[in-house]
């Protein structure tokens, strides 16, 4: 599944569809520009929070709560009594859902509910690790490319093109075959699949900033490159990075579960949601709960991430300023 739609899934801002910031960088600042510490008014944290809630709306709040509770359950799952029911033979084979076995049991007599809880943890853990790593590395490369331009920039752009054009799941399969299937391979695969998008977006945003007066001023005053990148440029691309990370997180979750579905992600008995779907698909007709439970939870998790990501964008980047004509 090629799912790096990322820089185009930016649904409410059609102008950022395609190499957004670079194609539409008309030198007048499409991107929200704000030099560090130059905030106009500073409302109190309490005011900010109430404003945030108002802007976000009740549905977003619900989604955030679902997401947080999923992550919370994922974190505490290993310490819950129910974790014992992940043992083989703790119940009958392929029992349909009952009060005792909420999501039924699998072919080895394990509680599907307990395994789904573990799946939530693993799916989030792997995709968050990979996407955050890609976010950090990608921002750095993107900013450096925007700053240095020339050969380095061209090289980075071409590399990103190549990774972008490589069918992403096949790429993941090859990575997994090279370093051996498992969590680490899944993280590496997700990292490289989402990296080019991150680099492109950050580079695009950074290009709009490097020629701004305050950056030039900093340069003239003799600030080091590292200082300029992190002190002056990064704050201006940070919002783009955060929004993009949220989007890529949902893509990371899809890649992780796809790899696990093909048997190349986490190794048994560890159960990411994709791995559970893989195991369950062999029993679809006789034990549909083995597929329906992890499938529904996975979809819900990705939906929450997408929804919250959408909301985050509309809060951080309110309506794209119209180009000055």
């Amino acid at each position: 599944m090629a799912n790096s739609f990322s820089d185009s899934s930016d649904s409410d801002t059609p102008t950022s569809i395609h190499d957004s910031a670079s194609t539409h960088d008309n030198g007048h600042g499409d991107v929200l520009i704000e030099d560090s510490g130059a905030g106009a008014n500073n409302p109190s944290p309490g005011q900010r929070f109430t404003r945030l809630l108002r802007v976000a709306g009740p549905t977003t709040v619900i989604m955030v709560l679902i997401l947080l509770s999923m992550i919370f359950i994922g974190i505490i799952e290993p310490y819950l009594a129910i974790a014992d029911y992940k043992n083989i033979a703790s119940g009958p084979r392929r029992s349909a859902p009952t009060i005792q076995w909420l999501f039924g049991t699998d072919n080895l007599g394990r509680s599907v509910f307990a395994r789904v809880l573990e799946g939530i943890r693993l799916t989030f853990l792997l995709s968050v690790t990979a996407v955050v790593a890609a976010g950090i590395v990608g921002s750095f490369i993107g900013m450096a490319a925007a700053w240095y331009r020339g050969i380095f920039d061209t090289f980075i752009a071409r590399m990103a093109d190549v990774l972008f054009a490589f069918p992403s799941l096949i790429f993941g399969l090859i990575i997994s075959a090279i370093i051996g299937p498992g969590s680490f391979a899944a993280i590496v695969a997700i990292f490289f699949i989402v990296l080019p998008t991150m680099v492109r977006v950050v580079r695009g945003a950074a290009i709009g900033v490097v020629n701004r007066d305050f950056v030039v001023a900093a340069q003239i005053s003799g600030a080091s490159t590292a200082r300029i990148l992190f002190k002056h440029i990064f704050p201006n691309v940070a919002s783009v990075t955060v929004v993009q990370t949220a989007y890529l997180l949902s893509i990371g979750m899809i890649i992780e579960s796809s790899l696990s579905f093909l048997g190349l992600g986490v190794q048994p008995p560890a159960s990411s949601l994709g791995a559970l779907l893989r195991e369950g698909s062999a029993f679809l007709n006789i034990a549909p709960w083995m597929v329906l439970a992890p499938g529904a939870v996975l979809t819900l998790a990705i939906f929450c991430v997408n929804y919250v990501g959408d909301a985050a964008r509309s809060i951080i980047e309110p309506a794209q300023p119209r180009p000055l004509e």
Binding site: F5, G280, L284, T299, I302, Y307
Partner: peptide, 19 residues
């Protein structure tokens, strides 16, 4: 629904349809 459609991994939908 657009967000929802983009959130369903296609192998999840596929398995559901097969069932």
């Amino acid at each position: 629904s657009s967000t929802f459609l983009m959130s369903i991994p296609n192998f999840v939908l596929g398995s559901l349809l097969v069932y």
